[in-house]
Simulated scan of single mutants.
Amino acid sequence: MDLGTKLFRQTLLLLAGNRAAAAAAQRYGLKLGAGRFVAGLTLSEALTEMAELNRKRIAVTADHLGEGVRESAEASAYAEAYMQLLDGIHDRGLDAGVSLKPTQMGLALDPEAAYAHIRDIVRHAGEHRLFVCIDMENSPFTDATLAIVRKLHTEGLTGVGTVLQAYLRRSMDDCRRLTQERVVLRLVKGAYQEAPSIAYPHKREVDEQFKQLIRHRLDSGVFTAIATHDAAIIDWTCAYAARKGIQRSAYEFQMLYGVASTLQERLAQEGYGVRCYVPYGQSWYPYFVRRLAERPANVWFILKNW
């Protein structure tokens, strides 16, 4: 990554957490171009998009957007929105699960209350036989997020997994432990700004650890989601699995709504498990800016089509 691109990405990531910028962006709604990456502002809009993806043999992980709440009432409202999301998925008979962020449930405000919200959601999902993924946020919340998942499992709530980010130096150790505990994982490269002391700063290092994580999980037989749009990583994974005789039912590819749609459809048609991460809701701004930061070409696409 050249210096200009790095500075551009850092600036966007700073803006992702800027509430003044978020408030300004909200006035324009999805007209800024976020509609490419966000499935709508309402649950109804999102459910319609999920059904269309299912029609193409693509499963869904639905995310009611929101993070870093400042009041307990916000967390409670998000928890209720997830209950409605789970009911909507069940009522429509969709092939879908949900993802949620711990800070959205108030982790930074009241960890015990946040855990209670998450536990209620996971229990309700279990009633509908749906899966919950606890998203991984930036590094200050890594240990707490893993602790939440482990505690849920000890309570018998095993229909829940989490995410490991390949750019964090600790992730291989976390992967080994979670694999022994048979926790379902989504593997990603990572989209937050982290210090070089805890995160690999170079793409080649991130890619190498990503492959090591994938290899370890595929060899283990514990179900794994490989979340990437990197065609080279996808091809490497398919070749490795074929060479080792690993069944396609042991893993799936996950990609973002509005990104690499043709690739998603092709893999699904070839018989691979594919799941699309479908975000929706009023709090779309931080998510949108992180998508722009991941790939500067997305910015030029938005400007060209605005």
Rank of each mutant, 00 (worst) to 15 (best):
T179W: 04
A166R: 06
D135P: 08
R182W: 05
D219H: 07
Y200I: 01
F210T: 11
T224Q: 09
L213D: 02
H153K: 06
I226W: 03
T145R: 04
T158K: 15
K189R: 12
Y200S: 11
R177M: 13
R177L: 12
R170I: 09
T162W: 07
Q193L: 13
T154H: 12
Q212A: 15
E208L: 13
H216L: 14
R150C: 03
V184N: 10
G156L: 06
R177E: 14
Q212L: 15
E194S: 01
L185G: 04
P140F: 08
G221S: 08
E205Q: 12
D174F: 02
E181G: 15
A227Y: 01
Y167E: 08
A195H: 12
T224P: 10
H216F: 06
L218A: 13
R186C: 04
E155P: 01
C175L: 11
L185M: 13
Q193P: 00
L164V: 14
D207H: 09
E155R: 10
G221E: 04
F223R: 12
V160N: 06
L152R: 04
P201W: 09
R215N: 13
A199I: 03
S171M: 09
P140V: 02
A231T: 14
K151F: 03
G190W: 02
H202Q: 11
V163L: 03
Y200P: 07
V222M: 07
Q193Y: 07
D230V: 08
A227D: 07
L178K: 00
P196A: 02
A144S: 14
G159Q: 14
L146A: 03
L157F: 10
H153P: 04
T154K: 12
D135M: 08
R169Q: 11
P140Q: 06
E194C: 00
V149L: 06
T145K: 05
Y192C: 02
L164T: 07
T142Y: 15
L164W: 11
R217I: 11
I198W: 01
A144C: 01
S197I: 06
L185H: 02
T179Q: 05
Q209K: 07
P140G: 11
P196C: 02
T162P: 02
V160R: 03
P140I: 06
L157G: 05
D174A: 00
V222S: 04
I226R: 01
L146W: 05
L164H: 12
T224V: 15
A225L: 08
V184Y: 09
G190M: 03
H153Y: 09
V184P: 00
V206E: 06
E208Q: 14
S139G: 01
L146V: 10
M172W: 14
T228K: 09
Y200V: 07
L146S: 04
V188G: 00
G190I: 08
T158N: 15
L168E: 12
M136C: 10
K203S: 09
M172C: 09
R215E: 15
T145C: 09
K151V: 05
R186E: 05
V222L: 07
R204W: 04
E208W: 06
F141T: 12
T142V: 13
S220L: 14
E181P: 14
H229T: 09
V222D: 01
V184S: 13
